[in-house]
Design a protein around this nucleic acid. Sequence first.
DNA 1: ACTCAATTTCGAAAAATATGGAAATAGTGT
DNA 2: ACACTATTTCCATATTTTTCGAAATTGAGT
Lengths: 106, 106
Amino acid sequence: MKLEKAASQLEALGNPTRLQLYRILVRAGDDGLAVGSVQGKLDIPSSTLSHHLKRLVDTGLVTQERQATTLICRANYPGMNALIGYLADECCADAACAPAVGKALA
Amino acid sequence: MKLEKAASQLEALGNPTRLQLYRILVRAGDDGLAVGSVQGKLDIPSSTLSHHLKRLVDTGLVTQERQATTLICRANYPGMNALIGYLADECCADAACAPAVGKALA
DNA sequence: ACTCAATTTCGAAAAATATGGAAATAGTGT
DNA sequence: ACACTATTTCCATATTTTTCGAAATTGAGT
């Protein structure tokens, strides 16, 4: 993963509303959730929600699929895994770096 | 970890300059790096660097320690671990969720 | 074609962020 | 106290982000 892409995904998640939004989609699981249902849970205007959703889709963290008039949104797990992988690799927080981490924690 | 804190850390890392900066500090390891040394590697004005560094320190991703006139900066591994842990827990990307992840990858 | 519901785009204002030059500060040695 | 270096704060500006009402669009059913 390139640094630029990681940064854009981190920035996308670095907004409380979007992080909450992403969390909601994760919890919805493989079935996903319609934009309207998400709106009901977040209670923000549809235009605002649409902008935030677009940001998550553009950065590859969320996918969308039409079902009749509703748009189903799903958390894109591989996308998140790649991001976590990048952080772990770059930032030394995985098992391979456990000694350093342990030391830092001590 | 609270959602708000996670969001602020993600936002802090979600800027290419700051992510690069954080990467440099991670690679510097436990010895850390003086602000001036970081500046040499990034080639940005000191005031700009100082602003970005402050953001990382404020969000708990970097620590600083004075050594004479220089300020040593270090990546705060536990902080990053907590963040990755939050993402993994909230976002279903860890081993416990491997089935879902595998399905998504297929 | 018409209508209804779901969602996005347009347009515009307020707020936050990013950037950096210049001045101020902090810390050490003399 | 002074000089020197390292770093931050002050200040201002350009850019980006956030927000959302209103209008436009999309898709399905009639």
